[in-house]
Structure formats: structure tokens, C-alpha cells
Amino acid sequence: MPPRRKLNEFERGRAVAWFQDGVPKQEVARRLHVSISVIVRLIQRFTATGRVQERRRPGRPKKTTPREDRLIERLALQTRTASSSIIRRQLRVATNTNISQQTIRNRLHGFNLRSRRPAVRPRLTPAHRAARRAFCRRHVRWTRQQWSQVLFSDESRFTLNHNDDRLRVWRRQGERYIDATVQENVAFGGGSVMVWGGFQPSPQNTIVSCTG
């Protein structure tokens, strides 16, 4: 199911324009990554009022202006690993606006930015990349019988300490593997247990072995 979020004014205008051009509501919802009910309510409101803006709702007014909201988004995108407390301090220095960390997170959620663990990849030099391409070219035509003679292995880390020093990054849906949200590593640090495992494919079965 698409994530629950509010469309901004630009997205609401695009949704109405697509609908008027004959795009089905389901397709409009898919393009904007929202539930179909969000598009249905938007079209109903536009049909009744001719406007895409939401009705003013009673309650506590927002503590930030649209300009401050855009600044919060920009700060998170400039430094994906910045925590909500760091963004809060930066905003206070820049605009003298004092808001809570939860408000920072709420604004970023409104821009479809969520705090997630970064994808991890090994740090590859040009020599590493060239060697991997050469390996692929040498083995691209290997048969299943040839691969059955190869032992594939991998390793995982199990942290013993409460603080594993892992980062979190702000990212939108579909941004898991972009460079700004990926953490490169060379080797694991201390305070952890390494578990190694390997498997060897064969025509009949798979052999698995593990060691700590």
C-alpha cells in the first residue's frame, strides 16, 4: 500500500490536470505514490469548489512558515545523515525559529522524507571495478555444472554493544540506492561477532556450512 502522506499544492494541481486529460484516478494515485482515496477526495473537492487548496481547519496554527518548511527540507537533503536535533539547531540559527524535534520530523514527513538505515556497499576502487567486470566476462557462459564446483560465501555482523554507531539517512521512496543515501564501508569495527557462511550449488542439492 502506498505511504500515507499529504499532497502539496503543486502535486494537487498535477493530479487534477492529469485527471482532466483522461488519466484514470488509479493511475494518478500510482504516479503520485498515494492512496486512491486521496485522489478521489481531491477530485470531489475540485468539482465542488473549483479549487485544489484544502479547506482551512480550526486548531493550532503551524509554527513554521512555508519558507521555513522549505529550508528544513533543504537542510535534510544537503546532509542526509543530519538528525532532527541538528536540523533544529540549524533552523534556529538561520531563522531564530525554535520548534521541537518532532515538528522537524513532521515537516520532513510532509515532504515524503523518512529516516532510514542507509544501504551498505563496499568501497570499490577503479581496480576493484575492473576486476569485477573481467570476472563477469570470463564466467558469463559458465554452465550449471561448472558453477556447482564453486563455494559462495558471505559474512554478517552481530553487534554486542547497545550502540552500534550506525547512521540513519533521510530519503524518499525509491532513493535507497542513490549515492547520497548509501554508506560505504571498508571493514567492520570491534564489539561484534562475525558469522561466516557458505553454500555450494549442485545439480542435486545445496551444501551449507557456517562458523563463528
Rank of each mutant, 00 (worst) to 15 (best):
L32M: 03
L32G: 06
S37D: 12
S37N: 09
S37T: 12
I39D: 08
I43N: 00
Q44E: 10
A48K: 00
T49I: 02
G50V: 00
Q53Y: 00
R57A: 11
R60M: 11
T64R: 08
E73W: 07
E73D: 09
E73V: 07
R74F: 06
I86M: 07
I86H: 06
R88P: 01
R89I: 08
Q90T: 14
Q90D: 14
L91N: 08
A94F: 05
N96Y: 01
N96F: 07
T97N: 13
N98L: 15
I99C: 15
S100R: 13
Q101H: 10
Q102I: 03
T103C: 06
I104M: 06
N106W: 11
R107T: 03
H109M: 06
H109Q: 06
G110S: 09
N112L: 04
R114T: 07
R117T: 07
A119Y: 01
R121H: 09
L124M: 15
L124N: 15
L124H: 14
T125W: 09
P126K: 10
A127I: 04
H128L: 01
R132M: 14
R137G: 03
R138P: 02
T143W: 05
Q145I: 11
Q145L: 13
W147Q: 10
L151G: 08
D154F: 01
D154R: 06
L160T: 03
H162F: 03
N163H: 10
D164T: 13
R168H: 05
